[in-house]
């Protein structure tokens, strides 16, 4: 995929998110667009970094790191970025992703049927196991640290 295609897709997703942000969370698109463009800018910068830095790190890691660093209090411009991005509801950003994921999942339904009910039960138990044990460990540690 070319960089131009990346940007086009990011802008399309951003546009859909702005609509969702307006319908679901009543944020005026005019107010949300600057924050959304900041997010697009950070995403593009992350993609460029992963292209030009020869170490094999996925662009997602660069994006999260970059947007974290840019919003640490005290960094020049961090207040500006935080203020505008706050206008973009994070649930509004998630809905389009799951829409695409849902369309794609239509493709996997057959293979899911084939794997059978035993794997479905195993998968549910696996998810419960990971989730509950992580939560218990985190809860105990946070308590000991005095953070909750």
């Amino acid at each position: 995929m070319k960089l131009r295609d990346f940007i086009v897709i990011l802008l399309i997703t951003a546009g859909i998110s702005v609509v969702g942000n307006y319908i679901g969370y009543k944020v005026n698109p005019i107010e949300a667009i600057p924050g959304m463009l900041i997010l697009v800018g950070i995403a593009v910068a992350g993609i460029l970094l992963s292209k030009f830095i020869p170490v094999k790190i996925p662009s997602v890691a660069y994006i999260v790191t970059l947007s974290t660093l840019l919003t640490v209090p005290g960094i020049p411009g961090s207040a500006f970025i935080t203020e505008h991005v706050a206008k973009v509801n994070f649930l509004a950003l998630a809905t389009p992703i799951l829409a695409y994921a849902g369309i794609y999942t239509g493709k996997n339904l057959d293979s899911l049927k084939k794997t059978g009910w035993r794997i479905v039960i195993l998968a549910l138990v696996v998810m419960i196991g990971t989730y509950v044990s992580s939560a218990i460990i985190a809860n105990i540690t946070l308590k000991m640290l005095g953070q909750i």
Binding site: L39, V40, V60, V64, S67, T82, A101
Partner: peptide, 27 residues
Amino acid sequence: MDDAGSLIGLTLMLLMAKYGTNIGPTL
């Protein structure tokens, strides 16, 4: 369906950028 599959990774990036902006102030 095929195109959607190849796009999911990219659509995630805006959300990831948003996550970073939540981590920064609470670092």
